[in-house]
Design a binder for these strands. Structure first.
Lengths: 222, 222
DNA sequence: ATAATTTTGTGAAGCATTTCACATATTTGG
DNA sequence: CCAAATATGTGAAATGCTTCACAAAATTAT
């Protein structure tokens, strides 16, 4: 921020940096459980298979959080990163598609831990509608636009078959939701102001397959 | 290859390129279903939100598959990419941890479609051991080293709690498995010759959260 | 048959990201 | 209190990745 309070010179933060913040957050949570007061960029890097320079550079985009000669204060840095990532609050999430993948995600503890609370479920299967998953009743997907519009849900996870994903996402967008995580293996079209991310679980398996078949040397983990 | 028959000058193919090959494969499968004989880099790019130059450059690392003025032959290119990715064959996969995420993965059709066949399940829960999931009996995780060693399984998916993931992966590595896909949110230590990839589903949610809180402009999907 | 059009394949240029290296600040040890 | 050690923060260099731009090749239209 400059004197006017405006965020000036907001350097374009790379996607990789953001993903690494998630890793730092995870490592810091562990360091906190181990009762460490401080941590050096060296140790933090080691815990996530990165380089110390990378850690320092990443953090430097957001401020200077460390003390020379000492390192970073674990809890404080963890909280700072949480604030940067926006996980210092809770997010209400709707999950669409209570099938194979969907039902797994309803009970996925990591989401809850990071503040993502699944509070609404949708499906189109009459046998599922009205049923209860982990304490949440499944709503009819036909009402999704209305129900999402009326709710304070800001984030939607899509776990429906690829064949219907575009129709569903259109409704979700019409309901005013701005952030969507898609598990269907298809490239969905959304307006420019929607944040859409894809989770493609086969991709990493394919990477492993490629690596094995080609004796691919760089094995840096993601 | 040079005169000695050694693969020389094997350009380091980037991780991003490999991931995009997965996207091309997906798009080409769709184009095949739509009965397209050929496809241009422009169209292929459009279908996966990339640039035509990117598509051509990626493919050029592996050969020249197209015809100037015409484009790429859909089926042929699809097969070539499958061969590059090593998914022109089937892979026998073991899944460890038949819990929340694990059970979802057993029935995940995308894996099967790409040739990844889950043929063995392991868990440490007595109630699960011996039970049947999608036609596969759950084995006792205590025997994992022996059972994997005796099998022809080359790929393991880890879907166990973070707290035990390191112990389990140690056994998997001792059994001679060289490629592992880990779903536990923890950085696992493995020898240098093991291919380990991590699937961290919270990461993309955190990216969405970051984007929303910071009005992050670049919304290129992954 | 020829011209106009399309589209690939690829060096080179342009950008972006990572790593280096070091001045600076702080702590620790004697 | 001073010297040695530690560790950050950051420009600059190095590396890596993407886009540009165009010659070459093939197709399509006339």
């Amino acid at each position: 921020m400059d004197q006017t309070g405006e965020m000036v010179n907001k350097k374009r933060i790379s996607e990789s940096t953001i993903h690494r913040l998630s890793l730092y957050f995870r490592a810091l949570s562990q360091l906190e459980r181990e009762n460490n007061e401080t941590v050096s960029s060296k140790e933090l890097a080691k815990r996530e298979k990165l380089t110390p320079a990378q850690v320092r550079k990443d953090l430097s985009f957001f401020g200077s959080f460390g003390t020379r000669g000492l390192g970073y204060p674990v809890v404080e840095l963890k909280n700072k990163i949480a604030a940067i990532l926006g996980i210092d609050r809770s997010w209400k999430v709707a999950l669409v598609g209570v099938g194979n993948i969907g039902s797994a995600l309803v009970g996925y503890k990591e989401f809850t831990k990071q503040g993502f609370q699944i509070v609404k479920l949708f499906d189109n299967d009459q046998r599922k509608i009205g049923s209860n998953h982990k304490g949440i009743e499944v709503s009819d997907i036909d009402n999704i636009k209305e129900e999402l519009t009326e709710s304070d849900i800001e984030l939607v996870i899509l776990a429906v078959p690829a064949a219907v994903a575009q129709f569903v996402i259109d409704d979700v967008v019409r309901a005013g939701v701005k952030a969507i995580l898609n598990f269907a293996p298809i490239n969905l079209k959304v307006p420019d102001d929607i944040y859409l991310r894809n989770e493609n679980m086969s991709m990493e398996l394919e990477y492993l397959s490629f690596a094995m078949v080609n004796n691919h040397t760089p094995r840096k983990v993601r």
